[in-house]
Design a protein around this nucleic acid. Structure first.
Lengths: 352, 352
DNA sequence: CTTAGCACTCAAAGTTGCTGAGTGCTAAAT
DNA sequence: ATTTAGCACTCAGCAACTTTGAGTGCTAAG
């Protein structure tokens, strides 16, 4: 059977209406739409065809049609109308973003919350680093009675530190020697290169302050490894409860409990090699608990060797046009913000 | 009317049973309890009295009794039996806690999750600092092409850093002068003492590196202020959905949406001057959205000038004995863990 | 090819009556 | 003077039944 223009028009109308109402859509409702110049009987025939073709589904013998996954897919790919953000919407997104964001993890939490708020759906945000960082420079500061502060400067402009306490006294001069050795041997390495042999060599070269070496190496390796990882945040899971499809607490609970960082951790990975906005409709989702939900996600630029991603999880019936538009705008605004020269070093070495 | 021993016994039984079943409790059910040596009619009379006295409530003319807020209060204060933790329970709490906890905010998230898991209810955790920290020492590290790393060591053993980029070149020697000036004039001060006059004086004394002073001062003041604040985390809000009282999505949503950091921010404050475990029953809660829930909370010791707090939010019908026991044990174990010499510097200067 | 008309289906929303748990009161038993 | 058995009464919850109305598929006429 061929997918005529009229069939597409009917399908689009059905999806649009279903997105608005969450109720099965009947032929009469479609026939009464403003620019639908056919009678309900004709629509009925078309809907019947669309059902056979797999774009629509019938919950019961007699009670309207509902879009099937394939229907949503087609809708997202070619049928849906562009959604134009209103001034109000762009305004409120911009206002929300305009704050300073201090640390990556806090930033992600904030962004997830904002996206969730802007879409009234659960949202996730993630940041991952492409290419591992290496140490550019070590610095040791003598901090009195057996304490030493280790400062590590990474290749991506981040600075980290650690307070090390020792049972033994170390001389200021020993520290100078050690820091020279560290800078000579342990910079520019990936965490895999921190082998026991290296440890051995550095300790021998370091002399009296050698006791510090194992702690330093462990801290550094761990930090570098941590920096290769993806950081993510989820927010607004509870917004699902506002939707008619989750009035059944059992269902809501099942879906919501699978909306945590672990279950969604594959989403950022999917985005890695994608560009623009990606929509996963229902069963296209990996996790089986999410087979009745859709995900819309997009990338943004953080700079400093990091790639950001924001996404929204909602019922398959979500307003793809609107959500996609808002998400894209969000991503654009975030990229702009991070590109601003005033705060070039977002993931700055600050903490509390 | 007098609250006889028998009335107390009946009241306790009613609360116990209601906690278990979440269904209104009838006189017959009480009369059939193992060591209740009276007939249902007698119990009926007692229950009628307890209702008049405000300890019980009747949802409809004819359908069991339910504890009123005053009833829960009395139950918590004197009636409830001690709950003895099983080996399993202590074991699993200990296992959960035994990991290294790196940063305060991450630690709080983790603890909130663990408590929530251990009680199957939403949980909160918070850490606040008593007495503000001051700066013990400043250190400036030259980091090449117009970059300087500022390292600040606080009186509570924490170490923070910030990468500062400058449009102008600064000499290594200038940094030495500046750090001497900073250490001479800006240590041991509270954030309020960072006045414009001080800024003026330090900048004059600092010479060529004076351009750095405003940035340094702002960062320091902000950090110190941040350190006076309370940090908190909430987890497991969704667990409410498992409870019969929140099968109605509307209710669940209302309560859950008020379970965020903002709405609960007064709880840690309440604990400040309290000792041991504190229970807030229903209407005793401050937020009106929580008037049908109870809160159990307790303190624990973090060390390093910090006070921790964990709490659980649940229906007024929650199993106070069990929850209280688990929470106390949790707090005890956490205190012990933080007191362990192996990891004395928990909130260590590490970040990512 | 389109549409009006009609018989058919079925979920949702009443309607009714029953059941059972629970109460309060009274009068008998202890 | 308590305690308890007995009884009439109340009321939520459930199940069976009916009604309603939205929706369908098919057919025959436009």
């Amino acid at each position: 059977m061929e997918l005529t223009e009229r069939k597409k028009k009917v399908l689009r109308s059905v999806v649009d209406l279903y997105i608005r109402t969450a109720e099965p859509v009947g032929s009469k409702a479609i026939a009464e739409l403003p620019d639908m110049n056919y009678s309900s009987a004709t629509i009925r025939n078309e809907m019947s065809d669309l059902t056979v073709m797999g774009y629509l589904e019938q919950p019961h013998t007699s009670a309207g049609r509902v879009p099937a996954a394939a229907g949503y897919r087609l809708y997202v790919d070619e049928l849906m109308a562009d959604y134009r953000l209103s001034m109000d919407e762009t305004q409120s997104i911009n206002n929300a973003i305009e704050e300073k964001m201090q640390r990556v993890d806090k930033m992600l939490e904030k962004v997830a919350k904002l996206v969730s708020q802007a879409t009234d759906l659960p949202a996730i945000s993630a940041a991952s680093r492409y290419g591992g960082a290496t140490v550019r420079r070590f610095e040791l500061i003598f901090a009195g009675q057996g304490s030493v502060i280790l400062v590590v400067m990474l290749s991506d402009e981040q600075v980290l530190n650690k307070l090390i306490k020792l049972p033994v006294q170390v001389q200021q001069s020993d520290l100078q020697v050690l820091s020279a050795v560290l800078n000579a041997t342990m910079t520019g390495l990936s965490p895999e290169e921190f082998t026991p042999e290296l440890l051995q060599r550095v300790m021998e070269a370091a002399g009296d302050a050698g006791v510090l070496v194992p702690v330093i190496m462990e801290f550094t390796a761990e930090t570098l490894r941590g920096h290769g990882n993806t950081n993510m945040a989820v927010a607004g899971q509870m917004r699902l409860l506002g939707l008619p499809e989750y009035q059944d607490v059992g269902k809501a609970q099942k879906v919501m409990s699978s909306l945590d960082e672990e279950a969604l951790s594959n989403l950022p990975a999917i985005m890695q090699n994608q560009n623009g906005t990606k929509v996963l409709v229902g069963p296209e989702n990996v996790a089986s608990e999410l087979k009745d939900t859709s995900v819309v996600m997009t990338k943004f630029d953080i700079g400093d060797g990091m790639q950001g991603m924001i996404g929204v999880v909602g019922p398959t019936r979500m307003d793809y046009a609107k959500i996609t538009a808002r998400l894209s705008y969000f991503a654009e605004s975030l990229s702009k913000m991070f590109a601003k020269p005033e705060q070039p070093q977002l993931p700055e070495g600050k903490e509390d």
